[in-house]
Simulated assay, not measured.
Amino acid sequence: MVIGSLFVGHGAQKLFGWFGGSGLDGTDRVMAATQMYPVRPNSIAAGLTEAGCGALLVAGIATPAAAAGLIGVMTTAIRTVHGKNGPWNSNSGWEYNAVIIAALTALVDSGPGSPSFDAARGRVRSGPGWALGALIAGMAASTLATQLGRRNAPRSGEADEAVPSDAAA
Rank of each mutant, 00 (worst) to 15 (best):
1 M>V: 10
3 I>V: 13
3 I>K: 03
4 G>E: 02
4 G>R: 00
4 G>P: 01
4 G>W: 02
5 S>R: 06
6 L>S: 05
10 H>L: 08
12 A>Y: 06
13 Q>T: 00
13 Q>I: 01
18 W>Y: 11
18 W>A: 14
21 G>P: 01
23 G>Y: 06
24 L>I: 13
27 T>M: 11
31 M>V: 03
31 M>E: 07
32 A>I: 06
32 A>G: 15
32 A>E: 08
32 A>P: 02
36 M>F: 07
36 M>K: 15
39 V>W: 00
41 P>V: 12
41 P>K: 14
43 S>W: 06
49 T>N: 08
49 T>S: 15
50 E>P: 02
56 L>C: 12
56 L>E: 04
56 L>W: 09
57 L>M: 14
60 G>E: 10
61 I>F: 11
63 T>E: 15
73 V>C: 05
73 V>G: 03
78 I>T: 07
78 I>R: 05
81 V>I: 15
81 V>M: 15
82 H>L: 08
82 H>Q: 12
83 G>E: 12
84 K>N: 05
85 N>H: 15
90 S>H: 05
94 W>I: 04
95 E>L: 11
95 E>Y: 08
96 Y>L: 14
97 N>Y: 01
98 A>W: 01
99 V>H: 04
99 V>Y: 09
102 A>L: 15
103 A>N: 08
103 A>H: 01
103 A>G: 09
106 A>I: 12
106 A>W: 12
108 V>H: 04
109 D>A: 15
110 S>I: 03
115 P>D: 15
117 F>E: 04
121 R>S: 09
122 G>S: 10
123 R>N: 10
124 V>K: 10
126 S>V: 02
127 G>L: 06
132 L>F: 14
133 G>H: 07
134 A>M: 04
135 L>C: 08
135 L>Y: 05
136 I>Y: 11
137 A>K: 10
139 M>I: 12
147 Q>E: 14
147 Q>T: 13
150 R>P: 00
150 R>Q: 14
152 N>C: 08
153 A>H: 02
153 A>T: 02
154 P>E: 14
157 G>H: 11
159 A>P: 01
160 D>C: 14
162 A>Q: 15
163 V>Q: 03
165 S>T: 07
166 D>N: 13
167 A>L: 03
